[in-house]
Protein backbone atom coordinates (compact mmCIF):
# COMPACT_ATOMS: atom_id res chain seq x y z
CA UNK A 1 0.00 0.00 0.00
CA UNK A 2 2.94 2.23 0.61
CA UNK A 3 3.55 2.86 -3.06
CA UNK A 4 0.06 4.26 -3.57
CA UNK A 5 0.27 6.67 -0.66
CA UNK A 6 0.89 10.32 -1.30
CA UNK A 7 3.64 11.22 1.09
CA UNK A 8 3.73 14.92 1.71
CA UNK A 9 6.21 14.32 4.51
CA UNK A 10 9.94 14.07 4.04
CA UNK A 11 12.94 14.57 6.32
CA UNK A 12 14.40 17.96 6.78
CA UNK A 13 18.12 17.99 6.07
CA UNK A 14 19.02 18.03 9.73
CA UNK A 15 16.61 15.28 10.66
CA UNK A 16 17.79 13.10 7.81
CA UNK A 17 21.19 13.14 9.47
CA UNK A 18 19.68 12.29 12.82
CA UNK A 19 17.75 9.43 11.25
CA UNK A 20 20.87 8.08 9.63
CA UNK A 21 22.67 8.36 12.97
CA UNK A 22 20.06 6.14 14.61
CA UNK A 23 19.98 3.66 11.75
CA UNK A 24 23.75 3.36 11.88
CA UNK A 25 23.51 2.06 15.44
CA UNK A 26 22.08 -1.23 14.20
CA UNK A 27 23.68 -3.92 12.06
CA UNK A 28 23.03 -3.97 8.34
CA UNK A 29 19.59 -5.32 7.51
CA UNK A 30 18.30 -4.50 10.97
CA UNK A 31 17.50 -0.92 10.14
CA UNK A 32 13.90 -1.39 11.27
CA UNK A 33 15.13 -1.37 14.86
CA UNK A 34 15.43 2.38 14.47
CA UNK A 35 11.71 2.82 14.01
CA UNK A 36 11.08 4.35 17.43
CA UNK A 37 13.66 7.17 17.36
CA UNK A 38 12.66 7.89 13.77
CA UNK A 39 9.02 8.21 14.70
CA UNK A 40 10.02 10.57 17.49
CA UNK A 41 12.11 12.72 15.16
CA UNK A 42 9.28 12.78 12.67
CA UNK A 43 6.78 13.71 15.37
CA UNK A 44 8.96 16.64 16.38
CA UNK A 45 9.41 17.76 12.81
CA UNK A 46 5.68 17.55 12.25
CA UNK A 47 4.93 19.72 15.28
CA UNK A 48 3.94 17.17 17.84
CA UNK A 49 2.02 14.39 16.22
CA UNK A 50 2.43 11.59 13.69
CA UNK A 51 0.11 10.86 10.79
CA UNK A 52 -0.48 7.91 8.51
CA UNK A 53 1.63 9.64 5.85
CA UNK A 54 4.55 9.88 8.26
CA UNK A 55 4.21 6.23 9.23
CA UNK A 56 4.18 5.22 5.59
CA UNK A 57 7.16 7.44 4.88
CA UNK A 58 9.11 5.82 7.72
CA UNK A 59 7.97 2.36 6.62
CA UNK A 60 9.36 3.07 3.16
CA UNK A 61 12.49 4.62 4.62
CA UNK A 62 13.20 1.57 6.78
CA UNK A 63 11.87 -0.93 4.25
CA UNK A 64 9.31 -2.45 6.57
CA UNK A 65 5.56 -2.99 6.36
CA UNK A 66 3.50 0.08 7.14
CA UNK A 67 1.29 -1.88 9.53
CA UNK A 68 4.31 -2.65 11.72
CA UNK A 69 5.13 1.05 12.00
CA UNK A 70 1.52 1.75 12.80
CA UNK A 71 1.56 -0.94 15.49
CA UNK A 72 4.57 0.69 17.17
CA UNK A 73 3.18 4.19 16.83
CA UNK A 74 -0.17 3.24 18.34
CA UNK A 75 1.29 1.08 21.11
CA UNK A 76 3.39 3.78 22.72
CA UNK A 77 1.45 6.61 24.27
CA UNK A 78 4.10 9.24 23.63
CA UNK A 79 3.36 9.22 19.93
CA UNK A 80 0.41 11.52 19.42
CA UNK A 81 -2.08 10.84 16.68
CA UNK A 82 -3.92 14.12 16.89
CA UNK A 83 -2.41 17.61 16.63
CA UNK A 84 -1.24 18.90 19.99
CA UNK A 85 -0.71 22.44 21.22
CA UNK A 86 2.62 24.19 21.50
CA UNK A 87 2.86 23.08 25.09
CA UNK A 88 1.75 19.56 25.80
CA UNK A 89 0.92 19.50 29.51
CA UNK A 90 1.14 15.94 30.74
CA UNK A 91 -0.06 15.63 34.30
CA UNK A 92 1.08 12.50 36.07
CA UNK A 93 -1.83 10.79 37.78
CA UNK A 94 -0.22 7.63 39.11
CA UNK A 95 -0.39 6.76 42.81
CA UNK A 96 2.54 8.73 44.35
CA UNK A 97 1.59 11.90 42.47
CA UNK A 98 -2.07 11.28 43.15
CA UNK A 99 -1.38 10.93 46.89
CA UNK A 100 0.56 14.19 46.77
CA UNK A 101 -2.34 16.00 45.13
CA UNK A 102 -2.19 15.49 41.39
CA UNK A 103 -5.97 15.84 41.28
CA UNK A 104 -5.61 19.43 42.45
CA UNK A 105 -2.92 20.06 39.86
CA UNK A 106 -5.22 18.67 37.19
CA UNK A 107 -8.14 20.83 38.24
CA UNK A 108 -5.86 23.89 38.40
CA UNK A 109 -4.81 23.18 34.81
CA UNK A 110 -8.41 22.67 33.74
CA UNK A 111 -9.43 25.90 35.38
CA UNK A 112 -6.53 27.93 33.99
CA UNK A 113 -6.79 26.53 30.46
CA UNK A 114 -10.55 26.11 30.30
CA UNK A 115 -10.30 22.66 28.72
CA UNK A 116 -10.66 19.13 29.94
CA UNK A 117 -8.41 16.11 29.59
CA UNK A 118 -7.33 15.30 26.06
CA UNK A 119 -8.32 18.67 24.64
CA UNK A 120 -6.39 21.53 23.08
CA UNK A 121 -7.00 25.20 23.73
CA UNK A 122 -8.49 27.18 20.89
CA UNK A 123 -5.36 29.24 20.38
CA UNK A 124 -3.37 26.03 19.97
CA UNK A 125 -1.06 26.82 22.85
CA UNK A 126 -1.86 24.03 25.28
CA UNK A 127 -2.93 20.43 25.20
CA UNK A 128 -3.83 18.82 28.50
CA UNK A 129 -3.50 15.11 29.14
CA UNK A 130 -3.13 12.74 32.03
CA UNK A 131 -0.27 10.28 31.79
CA UNK A 132 0.86 7.27 33.75
CA UNK A 133 3.90 7.39 36.00
CA UNK A 134 6.41 9.95 34.81
CA UNK A 135 9.10 8.41 36.99
CA UNK A 136 9.51 11.50 39.13
CA UNK A 137 7.76 10.12 42.19
CA UNK A 138 10.32 11.52 44.60
CA UNK A 139 9.31 15.05 43.63
CA UNK A 140 5.59 14.34 43.27
CA UNK A 141 3.38 15.79 42.01
CA UNK A 142 5.07 16.12 38.65
CA UNK A 143 4.01 17.49 35.30
CA UNK A 144 5.83 17.08 32.01
CA UNK A 145 5.49 19.91 29.57
CA UNK A 146 7.01 18.92 26.26
CA UNK A 147 10.48 17.66 27.18
CA UNK A 148 10.76 19.35 30.56
CA UNK A 149 9.64 18.13 33.96
CA UNK A 150 8.12 20.45 36.52
CA UNK A 151 8.01 18.99 39.98
CA UNK A 152 6.87 19.70 43.55
CA UNK A 153 3.90 21.59 42.19
CA UNK A 154 0.99 23.15 43.98
CA UNK A 155 -2.13 24.41 42.24
CA UNK A 156 -0.77 27.96 42.63
CA UNK A 157 2.68 27.27 41.17
CA UNK A 158 1.03 25.27 38.38
CA UNK A 159 -1.24 28.16 37.45
CA UNK A 160 1.69 30.58 37.60
CA UNK A 161 3.71 28.26 35.39
CA UNK A 162 0.96 28.11 32.79
CA UNK A 163 0.61 31.90 32.91
CA UNK A 164 4.28 32.31 32.17
CA UNK A 165 4.16 29.82 29.35
CA UNK A 166 1.13 31.56 27.88
CA UNK A 167 3.02 34.83 27.87
CA UNK A 168 6.01 33.19 26.30
CA UNK A 169 8.30 33.83 29.24
CA UNK A 170 11.12 31.53 30.25
CA UNK A 171 10.36 28.99 32.93
CA UNK A 172 12.62 27.03 35.19
CA UNK A 173 12.25 23.28 34.81
CA UNK A 174 12.72 20.91 37.70
CA UNK A 175 11.51 21.27 41.29
CA UNK A 176 9.41 24.36 41.85
CA UNK A 177 10.37 24.54 45.53
CA UNK A 178 13.67 24.90 47.28
CA UNK A 179 15.15 21.60 46.42
CA UNK A 180 18.20 20.59 44.49
CA UNK A 181 17.15 18.02 41.89
CA UNK A 182 15.82 15.12 43.95
CA UNK A 183 17.63 15.96 47.13
CA UNK A 184 15.75 16.54 50.40
CA UNK A 185 13.26 19.38 50.36
CA UNK A 186 14.61 22.51 52.03
CA UNK A 187 18.26 21.59 51.67
CA UNK A 188 20.46 18.85 53.01
CA UNK A 189 19.48 17.09 56.22
CA UNK A 190 22.46 14.81 56.58
CA UNK A 191 26.14 14.99 55.66
CA UNK A 192 25.91 18.76 56.01
CA UNK A 193 29.63 19.01 56.70
CA UNK A 194 30.54 17.02 53.65
CA UNK A 195 32.67 19.00 51.30
CA UNK A 196 32.97 17.52 47.90
CA UNK A 197 36.18 19.34 47.14
CA UNK A 198 37.82 18.15 50.25
CA UNK A 199 36.87 14.58 49.50
CA UNK A 200 38.77 14.74 46.29
Amino acid sequence: MSETAITAFSWSEENEKKAQYHIAKYPEGRQQSAVMPLLDIAQRQNGGHVTIEIMEYIADYLDMPAIKVQEVATFYTMYNHKPVGKHHVQVCGTTPCWLRGSDDIMSACKKRLGISKGETTEDGMFTLSEVECAGACVNAPAVAINDDYFEDLTPETMTALLDKLAKGEDVKPGPQIDRQTSGPAGGLTTLKDFDAKEAE
Partner: peptide, 17 residues
Protein backbone atom coordinates in the same frame (compact mmCIF):
# COMPACT_ATOMS: atom_id res chain seq x y z
CA UNK B 1 2.15 -7.82 5.87
CA UNK B 2 -1.39 -6.54 5.97
CA UNK B 3 -2.55 -7.41 9.46
CA UNK B 4 -1.50 -6.11 12.81
CA UNK B 5 -2.70 -5.15 16.24
CA UNK B 6 -3.05 -1.51 17.07
CA UNK B 7 -3.13 0.27 20.42
CA UNK B 8 -2.50 -1.54 23.65
CA UNK B 9 -4.04 -3.24 26.64
CA UNK B 10 -7.80 -3.11 26.73
CA UNK B 11 -7.82 -0.95 23.63
CA UNK B 12 -6.01 -3.47 21.46
CA UNK B 13 -7.60 -3.88 18.05
CA UNK B 14 -6.64 -6.42 15.45
CA UNK B 15 -7.01 -4.94 12.01
CA UNK B 16 -5.81 -4.97 8.47
CA UNK B 17 -3.75 -1.97 7.42
Amino acid sequence: DDMGSLWRGEHTEVTTY
